[in-house]
Amino acid sequence: MTVIARSSRRARARRARVGTWVLLILIGIVFAAPLLFLIVGAFKPGTLVLTEASSWRAFWPSHASLNNFATAITRSQLFTLLLNTIIVTGTIVLSGLVINSLIGYALARFRFRGRRFLLLLIVALAVVPFQAIAIPTLLEMSQWGLRNTYPGLILPMIANAFYIYLFYSFFLAMPVELEEAARVDGAGPLRVFRSIAVPLAGPAFATVAILSFMSSWGELLWPSLMTDDITVRTIQLGISVIRSSPPINQGVVLASVLLAALPVMVVFIVLQRRFIESAARSGIK
């Protein structure tokens, strides 16, 4: 290889690196600008949010104060909304992890009659979107007097065919030796599951936890059908009420949106490194 060829290759590598950075920064601006607009706007007086929205001032916190947050919290009972969402989401995520992993594990590790049929059923059910059956489910719920209750918001969202499938394929790919050894030592099925299989399945649990946390925190359709009462209303629905009920103050709107987004943002930032790792290992792809 000649010296010229080598140096031109190095120059190409440098150009590629500069190109990567330029792209990253340009795309980064497209993604960061609306987020920055949200954060800055939440601290600005409502009238300025609009009048300054079309220039660089949109990203400058003029007349910054905490007034919007105070108004959001007092006028729209934001803490009630947040607390409701935490209760609903927390219950769905935690009980979902237990219930979906149990059946996923049984499908992967136990031999029993009807296993293949059950597996097919799970795959078929994963295709049925919840939205398509929302109306009959709503009728069931009203029949049982569960409208405007936490159980009404929670129960239909716990078992999830897609998460079951994720657990199933993860357990299937996991080496079985440790569990066999524990079994020979006399541990019962639940014991083997709890103390051997679960600790080894961290990535699958992390992935399902994040997916299910994001989707129940962001759920809009089901709470809007199930609740007309502020005492159980969730934050996403709350936001759409705040957005559309006069007097509309865009500063207050953005402040409530920011408060609604903060918990998920924090959870994600804490877990994000693990999430991308575990997405890779949990067989989600």
């Binding site: 994001m214 925190w217 962001g218 996403q236 936001i239 953005l254 987004a261 998920v264």
Partner: peptide, 11 residues
């Protein structure tokens, strides 16, 4: 994605 559809739409 973390923020969700309703929040993104509002912005």
């Amino acid at each position: 994605v973390v923020l969700g559809g309703a929040v993104v739409s509002t912005i």
